[in-house]
Write a protein that binds this DNA or RNA. Structure first.
Length: 920
RNA sequence: GGUCGCGUAGCUCAGCUGGUUAGAGCGCUGGUCUCACAUACCAGAGGUCCGGGGUUCGAGUCCCUGCGCGACCACCA
């Protein structure tokens, strides 16, 4: 059993499995994710609240990459804010997901050969509750496996008693304000789910269909008539059985004298009028449109205008049947047929009757149920609606004036456009699983009562009442989520401390379903926006850019990734690739390749920690502040300076956390939450600077003695500590595990440590850059001349006067990192040699007596010189261009001038070298 | 039909208000098991920045246009 406190027990490869479960258990035990209302500044505490409510996954869901992505985003943000000293709350929960869950349970019943009607409503609901209790919420456990730092003590559920009370309160308040009404309308109906759907739930799909031209014969024919019939065009011939009129545009001269006449509806054998209505577009089809009020929303409106009947000829299952006012319309040979079979049959019948004029191919969009993909049937029925216009006003204003910002910015226009044209929301569903509509009907006096409490009798006449059979759209309860989860409608401490929340992270697909409704309802009930930032991330797709989904078999199971490479590797990979709003492309067929960046980085961090912990020794490590600034070496100053730069990059990428005032100002509005930039900033520092250069440079100092060893240990530990802090939000497991082993940390938790801040660095931090250049120069020469890695070469630095001292001081370090014996001189030796010229003009000279290929070196040098000449010429032309000097930004011009000086100096040296070595 | 986005190295992507010789990771080539790390290190190859116009001293970046993808919205039957 390895001892995690003993660095000797650290294996060279990080093994996430041994660390992650234990880490998470410890975080839970220590309660570090729990937020307390009393600490919020809004409740008299000292910490600004920072709140994210988790988009509740369906209670029956299992984790997929979409969840993995979104919840990692939220976790990174909330962990960042937690370290910044905010009272950070990430509030988790699940959604009862009306249709989705009911469908799952119905499928289970189907396996037993039963339908929900066989078992009855209360038994069905009970069974569903049972199912949810047994299998639901699995996803929340899975989220823990990827490190989600949610406050699980507050886990909410839309169908819990508390949230159900919020739903009733919301419904009744809207009802009392006249914003909820019952209407007889044509709505989208799913014949498979047997429920109505909102406009948003009926998705458009482009479909290759046909446009049928059907002749409706005039009932009486004049000699003046050009034809004995009027031809209508339709994509859905089966609905003709429900036709009540043919509409033509009043401006359409072709049909001017037919208006007011009647035609005989084929097959149904009913006489129907020809009416004039603006709805008919003369340019489409034949310019004459059949009117089927019960099965088309537009036709419904036409029928209302003309006071026509509205016979229903398709039943709720999508089968042809006379349902209402349609007696005799459905021929025997069609009755009972599914609508699509009926279409074929009717087309055949029309063809036989000679009424089918022609059939054209026609591409159009067909709406399908968002849950089961069944083609939706427009259907006349009685539903509950929310009047949206008044609710939309404040929600529009909030985004327009910057109270709420949406990232990426382009979605704001989409949001505004949708809200401006918003239509009433059908909230009733003919389902059993959900919040039953809190409305009671009195058959005695006809009163309709919405009530917070269950009613046993009519409040008006005390007669018997019955509750509405329908349930609410699942998105109705979701819309209350940011405040129902905090205890609304009660005036709770949580609500005061944490509402409004800060950031909502989700996929753009549910901008209308959910985000806009939360904002509208937040204003409706709290008078305030539910959050200040909407962060819309992209979609996870495979390498063919196809959205990952279980049904397509192109998904990646995040738990597989966790098992293979660890949660940190998953998180890092996903976050590093998070361009704002951009899709994430991963290869489900090559997890190794997809997640190597994360796995490699985590291993690198682990090994850096391993080196540090095994080479630190047991002496106490000094605090950086206690060291005299004079003791800092060039490397020390450089790495501390680079750390400052990294912190600045991360801060700029992440922040600002919240608007400076009531609204976002212009500078802040679209900045921040660039998670990929943050990750890259931290990675580049950790790997490219700290590991590659500082750790390498510090090695001899650690095994030395005295003050310098103390300094090196102090700086190394400080820098590593700080970079672990920067990385904690992204890779919490490995960073916390390493951090806890640092001297003096013991039982602290990195998740609660302070976020890094820049500190003043004495002296010139840039000097070390020359060391790096020199090492790179020598390495390049070695590679160019194929000098075996084992051999140490002699090397001369011909230093510029300004950097001579620096080169002398650091000669040993340069030599060690480049495997060379370095000496520093003032003038170039004349022997045959390879060389490189550094940016300050210092030359690296590598004697190659007997080995160097003079011709090759000359060729190389000449090429360098040519290239430099070319660039120098372009640079000088630019500087001599009056317009450039006059119009370019002054700092740009200054930089170009400086460059000209440097390049000229290099050219002199290079030309000199070419002359000595190559003659000519 | 309307609106919007994208097209930069073999792959996935950065490139912020136009201004050095366009970057990273993965992959590839060559070399290293160098006492933290071969899930690593060192060096390298690889780009007409989708095509065509234009604005500008200067365009991957701005404008127009063409091509190719993609998303969202939509009551033309």
């Amino acid at each position: 059993m390895p001892d995690p406190a003993n660095p000797q027990d650290m294996p060279p490869q990080y093994d996430p499995a041994t660390v992650e479960t234990a880490s998470y258990a410890r975080w839970t035990r220590d309660g570090i994710f729990a937020a307390r209302a009393t600490r919020s500044t809004r409740a008299g505490g000292s910490r600004p609240p920072y709140v994210i409510v988790m988009p509740p996954p369906n209670v029956t869901a299992v984790l997929h990459m979409g969840h993995g992505l979104n919840n990692t985003v939220q976790d990174v943000i909330v962990r960042w804010r937690r370290m910044c000293g905010d009272e950070a709350l990430w509030l988790p929960g699940t959604d009862h997901a009306g249709i989705a869950t009911q469908n799952v349970v119905e499928k289970l019943l189907a396996r037993e050969g039963k339908t929900r009607h066989d078992v009855g409503r209360s038994a069905f609901v009970h069974r569903t509750e049972q199912f949810v209790a047994e299998t639901g919420g699995v996803i929340l456990q899975q989220l823990k496996a990827i490190g989600a730092s949610a406050d699980w003590s507050r886990t909410a559920y839309t169908l819990s008693p508390g949230l159900s009370r919020a739903v009733r309160e919301a419904f009744v308040r809207l009802f009392e304000r006249g914003l909820i009404y019952r209407g007889h309308r044509v709505i989208h109906w799913c014949p498979r789910c047997l429920t109505s759907l909102s406009d948003e739930e009926a998705e458009h799909h482009e479909t290759e269909g046909k446009l049928y031209h059907i002749a409706y014969p005039l009932t009486s024919v004049n000699t003046r008539d050009a034809a004995a019939s009027i031809v209508v065009a339709t994509t859905r011939p089966e609905t003709m059985l429900g036709d009540v009129a043919v509409a033509v545009n009043s401006t359409d001269e072709r049909y001017a004298d037919l208006v007011g006449r009647t035609v005989r509806l084929p097959l149904a054998n009913v006489e129907i009028p020809i009416v004039a209505d603006e709805y008919s577009d003369p340019a489409f089809g034949t310019g004459a449109v059949k009117i089927t009020p019960a099965h088309d929303a537009n036709d419904f409106e036409v029928a209302q205008r003309h006071q026509l009947a509205m016979p229903i000829v398709i039943d709720e299952t999508g089968a042809m049947r006379e349902v209402m006012d349609a007696a005799g319309r459905v021929p025997d040979s069609v009755r009972g047929l599914d609508r699509f079979e009926a279409r074929d049959r009717i087309v055949a019948l029309l063809r036989d009757a000679g009424a089918l004029v022609k059939v054209e191919n026609h591409r159009h969009s067909v709406r399908r149920c968002y849950r089961c993909d069944t083609v939706v049937e427009p259907r006349l029925s009685e539903q509950w609606f929310v009047r949206m216009k008044p609710l939309a006003e404040p929600a529009l204003k909030a985004v327009r004036d910057g109270t709420v910002r949406i990232l990426p910015e382009r979605w704001e226009a989409v949001y505004i456009n949708w809200l401006e044209g918003i239509r009433d929301w059908n909230i009733s569903r003919q389902l059993w699983w959900g919040h039953r509509i809190p409305v009671w009907y009195c058959d005695g006096c006809g009163r309709v009562s919405a009530s917070r409490e269950n009613l046993a009798q009519c409040p008006a006449c005390s007669g018997p009442v019955r509750q509405d059979e329908d349930v609410l759209d699942t998105w109705f309860s979701s819309g209350l989520w940011p405040f129902s989860t905090l205890g609304w409608p009660d005036d709770t401490e949580d609500l005061r401390a944490f509402y409004p929340t800060d950031t909502l992270s989700t996929a753009p697909e549910i901008l209308f379903f959910w985000v806009a409704r939360m904002i509208m309802l937040g204003y409706a009930f709290l008078g305030e926006t539910p959050f200040r930032t909407v962060y819309l991330h992209g979609t996870v797709r495979d390498t063919n850019h196809v959205k990952m989904s279980k049904s397509l078999g192109n998904g990646i199971d995040p738990l597989d990734v966790v098992a293979l490479y660890g949660a940190d590797a998953l998180r890092y990979t996903v976050i590093a690739g998070m361009g704002l709003g951009a899709d994430t492309i991963l290869d489900p067929n090559d997890l190794e390749r997809s997640f190597a960046p994360g796995r490699n980085f985590v291993t690198k961090l682990w090994n850096m920690g391993r080196f540090l912990l095994t080479n630190l020794g047991t002496d106490p490590v000094a605090e950086l502040d206690t060291l005299s600034p004079q003791r800092l070496t060039r490397a020390d100053r450089w790495i501390l300076h680079r750390l400052n730069a990294a912190i600045a990059v991360c801060d700029a990428a992440l922040g600002p956390a919240r608007p400076a005032g009531e609204t976002w100002n212009d500078a802040d509005r679209y900045s921040g939450l660039r998670l990929n930039e943050y990750t890259e900033g931290a990675r580049a520092f950790a790997w490219g600077e700290l590991a590659d250069w500082y750790v390498e440079s510090v090695k001899p100092r650690l095994s030395g003695t005295g003050d310098d060893r103390e300094t090196a240990r102090a700086v190394l530990v400080y820098a590593f500590d700080q970079v672990l802090r920067l990385l904690q939000p992204i890779v919490p497991f490995v960073s916390d595990t390493l951090w806890r082993r640092l001297p003096g940390r013991h039982d602290e938790s990195l998740a609660l440590a302070n976020w890094p801040q820049a500190r003043a660095v004495p002296g010139n931090p840039a000097e070390f850059a020359l060391v790096i250049e020199a090492v790179n120069g020598i390495r390049k020469l070695r590679a160019d001349y194929s000098i075996a890695p084992g051999t140490t070469v002699a090397c001369v630095l011909v230093a510029q006067a300004t950097s001579r001292e620096l080169c002398r001081d650091e000669a040993a370090l340069i030599g060690r990192l480049s495997k060379a014996t370095v000496s520093v001189v003032d003038r170039a030796p004349t022997e045959t040699a390879a060389h490189a010229i550094l940016s300050d003009g210092t030359q690296v000279v590598l004697p190659l007596a007997g080995v160097v290929d003079i011709d090759r070196e000359c060729t190389r040098l000449q090429a360098d010189l040519d290239s430099l000449d070319k660039q120098l010429t372009a640079l000088r032309a630019r500087l001599q261009n009056e317009k450039f000097v006059a119009r370019a930004r002054p700092d740009v011009v200054a930089a170009e001038r400086q460059k000209e000086v440097e390049w000229s100096a290099r050219r002199v040296l290079l030309a000199d070298k070419v002359r000595t070595l190559c003659g000519a």
